[in-house]
Measured scan of single mutants.
Amino acid sequence: KLETFPLDVLVNTAAEDLPRGVDPSRKENHLSDEDFKAVFGMTRSAFANLPLWKQQNLKKEKGLF
């Protein structure tokens, strides 16, 4: 399991300012399950079932792209 970080560490943070080991294209993977659901309004599995373009739009909207 990946290390999780608080939302404010990941949202609207440039790649070079992210904690070590965080993939800038997969910031959402480093949210706790609770934060993930609070941000996206759905579970990880529901998010994973969305088309890629919709996932990317949601990530942009939430500052996690």
Score class of each variant (00 low, 15 high):
residue 4 T to W: 11
residue 15 A to V: 14
residue 25 S to A: 15
residue 30 H to D: 03
residue 12 N to W: 05
residue 40 F to A: 00
residue 55 Q to H: 00
residue 16 E to I: 11
residue 53 W to A: 09
residue 20 R to V: 15
residue 5 F to S: 03
residue 12 N to F: 06
residue 61 E to P: 01
residue 38 A to T: 13
residue 62 K to G: 03
residue 9 V to Y: 15
residue 32 S to N: 10
residue 22 V to F: 05
residue 11 V to F: 07
residue 61 E to F: 06
residue 50 L to P: 00
residue 31 L to V: 02
residue 16 E to A: 12
residue 27 K to M: 15
residue 5 F to D: 02
residue 21 G to K: 05
residue 45 S to V: 13
residue 36 F to N: 00
residue 24 P to H: 07
residue 13 T to Q: 09
residue 29 N to G: 09
residue 6 P to S: 06
residue 38 A to V: 12
residue 38 A to L: 14
residue 2 L to T: 10
residue 6 P to Q: 04
residue 40 F to W: 01
residue 41 G to E: 11
residue 53 W to S: 10
residue 20 R to N: 14
residue 44 R to A: 05
residue 47 F to N: 00
residue 51 P to F: 01
residue 29 N to R: 13
residue 45 S to A: 14
residue 48 A to D: 12
residue 8 D to E: 14
residue 32 S to V: 03
residue 57 N to M: 13
residue 26 R to P: 03
residue 46 A to S: 10
residue 36 F to R: 00
residue 44 R to Q: 07
residue 57 N to W: 12
residue 21 G to D: 07
residue 7 L to H: 05
residue 5 F to M: 06
residue 27 K to P: 07
residue 6 P to L: 03
residue 22 V to P: 03
residue 58 L to I: 11
residue 62 K to W: 05
residue 46 A to D: 14
residue 40 F to R: 00
residue 31 L to I: 09
residue 5 F to I: 07
residue 46 A to Y: 08
residue 30 H to M: 05
residue 47 F to P: 00
residue 5 F to T: 03
residue 59 K to I: 07
residue 20 R to W: 10
residue 27 K to Q: 06
residue 52 L to N: 09
residue 33 D to F: 03
residue 14 A to Q: 10
residue 26 R to H: 15
residue 48 A to E: 13
residue 35 D to S: 05
residue 25 S to F: 13
residue 15 A to I: 15
residue 59 K to W: 05
residue 11 V to E: 05
residue 55 Q to Y: 01
residue 11 V to P: 03
residue 53 W to Q: 10
residue 64 L to W: 08
residue 60 K to A: 11
residue 36 F to Q: 00
residue 25 S to C: 15
residue 36 F to H: 00
residue 50 L to Y: 03
residue 9 V to C: 11
residue 9 V to T: 09
residue 64 L to M: 08
residue 16 E to R: 10
residue 41 G to W: 02
residue 19 P to V: 04
residue 45 S to F: 13
residue 31 L to D: 01
residue 58 L to W: 04
residue 43 T to M: 06
residue 49 N to R: 11
residue 47 F to V: 00
residue 50 L to M: 09
residue 8 D to W: 15
residue 62 K to Q: 08
residue 4 T to R: 09
residue 3 E to H: 10
residue 15 A to L: 13
residue 26 R to L: 07
residue 4 T to K: 10
residue 34 E to Q: 10
residue 37 K to Y: 15
residue 54 K to W: 11
residue 27 K to C: 06
residue 37 K to E: 15
residue 36 F to I: 01
residue 31 L to C: 03
residue 51 P to R: 01
residue 13 T to Y: 07
residue 50 L to C: 02
residue 37 K to F: 15
residue 61 E to Q: 11
residue 30 H to N: 08
residue 42 M to N: 00
residue 4 T to S: 09
residue 16 E to Y: 01
residue 11 V to S: 07
residue 31 L to Q: 01
residue 57 N to P: 00
residue 55 Q to G: 00
residue 21 G to A: 08
residue 59 K to Y: 06
residue 10 L to F: 04
residue 64 L to R: 03
residue 40 F to C: 01
residue 43 T to R: 03
residue 52 L to V: 13
residue 1 K to D: 13
residue 24 P to E: 06
residue 5 F to N: 03
residue 42 M to R: 01
residue 28 E to C: 04
residue 18 L to A: 04
residue 36 F to M: 01
residue 32 S to T: 11
residue 22 V to M: 05
residue 3 E to P: 14
residue 40 F to Q: 00
residue 7 L to S: 03
residue 32 S to W: 01
residue 36 F to D: 00
residue 53 W to G: 08
